Simulated scan of single mutants.
Amino acid sequence: MKEAAKGLVPASSSVNEGAAPLVERLIAAATELRIGVERLENGVTVLDGGIAVCGSVAAGIAIGEICMGGLGRVRLTTSGGAGAAEGGWPTWLEVASAQPVLACLASQYAGWSLSASKEEGGGKKFFSLGSGPARALAAREALFDELRYRDHAASGVLVLEVDRMPPPVVVDKVLRDCELAPEQLTLILTPTSSLAGSTQVVARVLEVALHKAHELGFPLADVIDGDARAPLPAPSPDAGVAMGRTNDAILYGGQVHLTVAGGDEAARDLARRLPSSNSRDYGRSFADVFRDYDYDFYRIDPALFAPAEVWVSSLESGRTWHAGGIDMALLRRLWLDEA
């Protein structure tokens, strides 16, 4: 066990190489999954998950696995654990990874800030947080210094939660920072108001737990395995409502099980501090919270960005601690119109 916990991530693993065959399969199934495929004049491949096309939940699942660098599994289920048994919601996503730190933080996490001014963006400002394997090629975030990881693959894929094509200045920055030729880069665009967009965001339920554990100071090298689930809401054509629903799915419906090394006290403390119910902003829809803070993410209590219910198991003692709980009654009020 001590041997398994030595390094934060396997230095030999390439999240971009792991994602490459998944990208190829997504392109091959483009018609079936209702996604668009375009090759820009400069050679960059762009996959549209829901801007000019309808997209699909299945595409969102595939994009979720691409975001995890091929090191995570995402699947659709109608069981939903205890939530469905309580009459909570019919469709859930299940996520699992045997390399959760690498899959979630070095790849899936939306941490690369990309922006363009009004002039650079063709008359409209552009901003997006890039996620997926290409982040590890650029390694522009301080997180990569802590992880002691950088990818050196010959191709890369980046996911952007946007409703329009990024301007050329942003594409050029990605190419430059990733040290890729245009034909080596794939961009996947997934507006949250689309089926694929909502799905790939909810598929971040395990990543949200990993990020929160990191913020709490839990040693990332001690996170050995992880699995999670969350209910999948219908997307809304209103981008703000869609964002609120995907956040609520994790904050009030997300269930996460982490297996960790280290002592029992640290495992128990992590379980106690991890759930979203520790936040002063807990109990209201994320859309309302966001609005009340004048749409400023940084004014929201950081403790809110966490799954609703957690289990933390210690590999050293075999003990498991549980904290938090899902609130399907709240989600039903927010999401469901009775026939």
Rank of each mutant, 00 (worst) to 15 (best):
A4V: 15
V9Q: 06
A11E: 14
S14N: 01
G18P: 03
G18W: 07
A19T: 10
A20F: 08
L22N: 09
R25I: 07
I27N: 00
L33H: 02
G36N: 01
G36A: 11
R39I: 01
L40G: 01
G43A: 04
V46L: 01
L47I: 13
D48C: 12
C54A: 13
G55S: 06
S56K: 08
V57N: 05
A59H: 05
I63K: 08
G64K: 04
M68A: 01
M68F: 05
M68S: 06
L71S: 06
G72N: 04
V74Y: 11
V74W: 10
G80M: 08
A82H: 10
G83R: 02
G87V: 08
G87F: 12
G87T: 06
P90S: 05
W92R: 09
E94C: 11
V95P: 00
V95F: 08
Q99W: 12
L105A: 06
Q108G: 08
Q108N: 06
G111D: 03
S115Y: 03
S115H: 12
G121V: 00
G123D: 09
K125T: 15
F127D: 00
L129K: 11
P133C: 04
R135H: 08
R135L: 02
A136V: 08
L137A: 06
L137E: 03
R140H: 15
F144Y: 14
F144L: 14
D145N: 15
L147Q: 01
R148K: 15
Y149C: 10
R150F: 07
D151Q: 10
A153L: 05
V157W: 10
L158Q: 03
V162D: 10
R164A: 12
M165Y: 09
M165G: 11
P166Y: 05
P168W: 11
D172G: 13
L175K: 04
L175M: 11
R176C: 02
C178P: 02
A181E: 04
E183Q: 13
Q184R: 11
S194L: 05
A196Q: 08
A196F: 09
V201D: 05
L206H: 02
L210W: 12
H211E: 01
K212G: 11
K212V: 06
A213M: 06
G217W: 01
I224A: 12
I224Q: 14
D227R: 13
P231L: 02
L232Y: 00
A234G: 08
P235W: 00
P237G: 07
G244V: 09
T246E: 01
N247S: 06
L251K: 02
L258H: 02
T259R: 15
T259F: 09
E265G: 12
A266F: 07
A266L: 08
R268M: 14
R273D: 12
S277M: 12
R280T: 14
D281Y: 13
A287T: 09
R291I: 13
D292H: 14
Y295K: 13
Y295T: 01
F297S: 10
L304S: 09
F305C: 13
P307T: 02
P307A: 03
V310R: 14
S314E: 07
S314M: 05
A323D: 10
D327L: 07
A329Y: 00
L330A: 07
L331T: 04
W335S: 05
E338T: 10
E338V: 15
